[in-house]
Amino acid sequence: MEFSIMGVVNVTPDSFSDGGQFDDAAQAVAHGRRLAAEGATILDVGGESTRPGADPVPAGEELARVVPVVEGLSGVAQVSIDTMKLDVARAAVDAGASYVNDVSAFRHDPELAGFVADRGLDCCLMHMLGEPRTMQKNPRYDDVVSEVKAFLVERMEAAVAAGVPEERIQLDPGIGFGKTLEHNLELLARLDELAELGRPLVIGTSRKTFIGRLTGRDVTERVHGTVATCVIALERGARVFRVHDVAAVADALKVASATFAAWPTSPKTSTKTTI
């Protein structure tokens, strides 16, 4: 099984996991280089926190945070810009990024889709219920997997209509973005249904709150839980893993991939999880 690791390079003072650790450009670039050395083939640079309850960041401030980091990492690995804003994406691409990771799936700034198409970029379209400030306020679904799947189909069709080639699109079910613990587990258990869409699935479970609820671990101690979710997601069809702890996840996925390749029948089930 082939897979890719997307290393998280947050250039923010308020991200839930590592806010403030790499808000200096030189520190962020050094961190990105370490992640690439550990096995990340994509480096996802973000200057606006999307943690639950986060407030928006003005475009000028976001630009000042990310552009020097993108420039410093250009050529180290494929650089992704984690943004919802066209102006930020444009400046980041001019600085060397070739991938746009938009948590709003081109809803926040619809012109971003046309920009991605015109510049021949890769992109990730993610499901989020509401916006970061509101997404965790009592999220409800009749069937979370079916509703996320329908959303991703609609957003992919909108991107293709704007000129983005389907082969440039990756899809993210948005673990933790407007989901309860039960919703997150349901999505992980039934990722194979989303893999049916035929596009690479991006999974971002790294250090998230639901892992803390299951393990009782602080945000800095959730690497083992993160590894478990990534192995499960690989078996269920995910192919891109957005993580903070690149070395641990890369090693686990190499072993899991080799094992699954020799496994005559993968232990899939369509049974829903019960909590």
Score class of each variant (00 low, 15 high):
Arg133Met: 07
Ala40Lys: 04
Ala247Asp: 08
Leu63Tyr: 11
Leu112Gln: 12
Ser17Thr: 13
Thr273Val: 15
Leu63Gly: 07
Asp94His: 02
Gly216Leu: 07
Arg34Tyr: 02
Gly72Tyr: 01
Ala89His: 00
Arg155Pro: 01
Gly212Ser: 01
Gly212Lys: 05
Leu188Trp: 05
Arg222Leu: 13
Pro132Leu: 02
Val57Cys: 10
Gly53Leu: 04
Thr134Val: 06
Val116Lys: 06
Asp87Arg: 14
Thr215Ala: 10
Ala25His: 12
Arg236Ser: 01
Pro267Glu: 11
Val93Ile: 11
Ser146Lys: 14
Ala36Asp: 11
Val144Pro: 05
Pro58Tyr: 07
Asp143Asn: 15
Thr273Asn: 09
Phe151Asp: 13
Glu111Ala: 15
Lys268Val: 13
Thr12Asn: 10
Val231Gln: 03
Lys137Arg: 13
Arg168Glu: 04
Asp23Lys: 02
Ser104Ala: 03
Met84Ile: 05
Lys149Ile: 00
Val11Gln: 00
Val231Asp: 10
Gly53His: 11
Arg190Lys: 14
Thr215Pro: 10
His108Gly: 02
Ile5Tyr: 02
Val219Ser: 08
Cys123Met: 09
Glu111Ile: 00
Ala37Pro: 12
Ala161Gln: 08
Asp118Val: 01
Arg217Leu: 13
Val148Leu: 08
Asn138Ser: 14
Gln136Gly: 06
Val9His: 04
Glu111Gln: 14
Leu191Phe: 07
Glu147Gly: 10
Pro110Arg: 00
Ile81Val: 15
Thr220Ser: 15
Pro13Gln: 04
Asp102Pro: 05
Lys137Asp: 09
Glu61Ala: 14
Leu191Asp: 09
Asn184Val: 00
Ile169Leu: 12
Glu61Leu: 13
Leu63Pro: 08
Val246Gly: 06
Ala54Tyr: 05
Gly47Phe: 02
Thr259Leu: 14
Gly72Cys: 06
Glu2His: 12
Val103Asp: 08
Glu157Thr: 04
Val255Phe: 06
Ala161Trp: 01
Val148Ala: 10
Leu201Glu: 04
Lys149Cys: 04
Ser80Phe: 09
Leu201Met: 09
Leu125Ile: 09
Glu111Met: 03
Thr229His: 12
Ala97Glu: 07
Asp218Gly: 14
Ala28Arg: 07
Asp245Asn: 14
Asp14Met: 05
Gly198Ile: 04
Val57Ala: 05
Ala161Met: 04
Val160Ile: 14
Thr226His: 13
Glu221Val: 04
Gly19Trp: 03
Leu188Met: 15
Ala252Val: 06
Ala117His: 08
Thr265Val: 14
Gly114Asp: 00
Ala262Gln: 14
Thr41Pro: 10
Ser266Trp: 14
Arg190Asp: 12
Pro110Glu: 03
Gly39Cys: 09
Gly7Asp: 03
Ala189Thr: 10
Leu125Phe: 08
Ser4Gln: 10
Glu154Cys: 00
Ala113Gly: 02
Ala77Thr: 09
Gly32Thr: 02
Met135His: 02
Val202Met: 05
Thr180Ser: 13
Asp23His: 13
Phe260Asn: 11
